[in-house]
Amino acid sequence: MLSPLAPSAGKLLISEPFLMDPNFKRSVVLVTEHQEEGTVGFILNHKSTLLLSDLVPDFTGGNFPVYIGGPVAVDTIHFIHRCSDLLTDAEEVAKGVYWGGNFEALKILVNNQHIKPEDIKFFIGYSGWSGEQLQDEMKENTWIVSDQYDADVVFSHNEEELWKEVIINLGPKYAHVSNFPQNPNLN
């Protein structure tokens, strides 16, 4: 199931249906940085049981869910958003999708309820691959790369269906994969 696209910032990495690694099982990863030295991204559909206010008590402006961005540096908080008009120092990684920005300005905006949960996602940790690691995993058909999505997909809070949705968006060649059982041994 080789993907015709190469990974790059703004693309999605979609795990193959039978990947059993609990960190990446049925995951959709937004790539935010891809260079020769490595790749960084965030898993969009692995929601934790935590809220932002559980991690940073200074955030009092709402109940923002926190996602598990990946298994690397799980003691760090990251965010992607579509609020470039409010957080002007963010980096655009895809059309209408921004990574980072001034954390103190973010705190004020959240506490004053100028940012809504559907416009931002918070993550603990990130997904990271060194050097050729991601290319090796691509050769093993672990990932499908996609640019067939819009910002609404990235900020979806329907974690259970997100993996299926992005697979179906790839077109008829891949749509049947969305119905594969999670564990083929149980079929």
Score class of each variant (00 low, 15 high):
Met1His: 07
Ser3Arg: 11
Ala6Ile: 09
Ala6Glu: 06
Pro7Arg: 03
Lys11Phe: 02
Leu13Gly: 02
Glu16Trp: 00
Pro17Lys: 13
Phe18Gly: 04
Phe18Lys: 06
Phe24Asp: 05
Lys25His: 15
Lys25Ile: 02
Ser27Met: 10
Ser27Gly: 15
Leu30Asn: 09
Val31Tyr: 02
Glu33Gly: 07
Gln35Phe: 05
Gln35Val: 10
Thr39Lys: 12
Gly41Glu: 03
Gly41Gln: 09
Gly41His: 03
Gly41Cys: 05
Phe42Cys: 07
Phe42Glu: 03
Ile43Asn: 05
Leu44Lys: 14
His46Tyr: 08
His46Pro: 05
His46Asn: 13
Lys47Cys: 11
Lys47Thr: 08
Ser48Cys: 08
Leu51Val: 05
Ser53Asn: 15
Leu55Ala: 00
Val56Ser: 10
Pro57Thr: 06
Pro57Trp: 03
Asp58Thr: 09
Asp58Phe: 01
Asp58Met: 10
Gly62Trp: 02
Asn63Val: 00
Phe64Val: 09
Pro65Ala: 14
Pro71Cys: 05
Thr76Asp: 08
Ile80Asp: 02
Cys83His: 02
Asp85Gly: 11
Leu86Tyr: 03
Leu86Met: 13
Leu86Val: 04
Leu87Pro: 01
Thr88Lys: 13
Thr88Trp: 00
Asp89Thr: 07
Glu91Thr: 15
Glu92Asn: 07
Val93Pro: 01
Lys95Gly: 14
Val97Gly: 10
Val97Glu: 03
Val97Gln: 04
Tyr98Cys: 11
Tyr98Asp: 00
Tyr98Glu: 00
Tyr98Gln: 00
Phe103Val: 14
Asn112Ala: 14
Gln113Thr: 13
Gln113Arg: 15
Lys116Phe: 08
Lys116Asn: 13
Glu118Pro: 06
Asp119Val: 12
Ile120Lys: 10
Lys121Glu: 04
Phe122Asp: 09
Ile124Ala: 11
Gly125Val: 10
Tyr126Asp: 01
Ser127Met: 06
Gly128Trp: 01
Gly128Gln: 06
Gly128Phe: 02
Ser130His: 12
Gly131Gln: 10
Glu132Ala: 14
Glu132Val: 03
Gln133Met: 08
Gln135Leu: 13
Glu137Asn: 06
Glu137Tyr: 06
Met138Asn: 10
Met138Cys: 10
Glu140Asp: 13
Asn141Phe: 09
Thr142Lys: 11
Val145Glu: 02
Val145Thr: 06
Tyr149Lys: 10
Asp150Asn: 14
Asp150Gly: 12
Asp152Ser: 15
Val154Asp: 05
Phe155Ala: 09
Phe155Asp: 03
His157Cys: 10
His157Glu: 10
Asn158Pro: 00
Asn158Ser: 12
Glu159Phe: 05
Glu160Gly: 04
Glu160His: 06
Glu161Phe: 04
Lys164Asn: 09
Lys164His: 07
Lys164Trp: 00
Glu165Ala: 12
Glu165Asn: 13
Ile168Lys: 13
Leu170Met: 14
Lys173Cys: 01
Ala175His: 02
Ala175Lys: 13
His176Pro: 05
Val177Glu: 06
Val177Asp: 04
Ser178Asp: 04
Asn179Phe: 03
Asn179Leu: 09
Asn179Cys: 04
Phe180Tyr: 15
Pro181Asp: 03
Pro181Leu: 08
Gln182Arg: 09
Pro184Glu: 01
Leu186Gly: 04
Leu186Met: 14
Leu186Val: 13
Leu186Glu: 09
Asn187Lys: 12
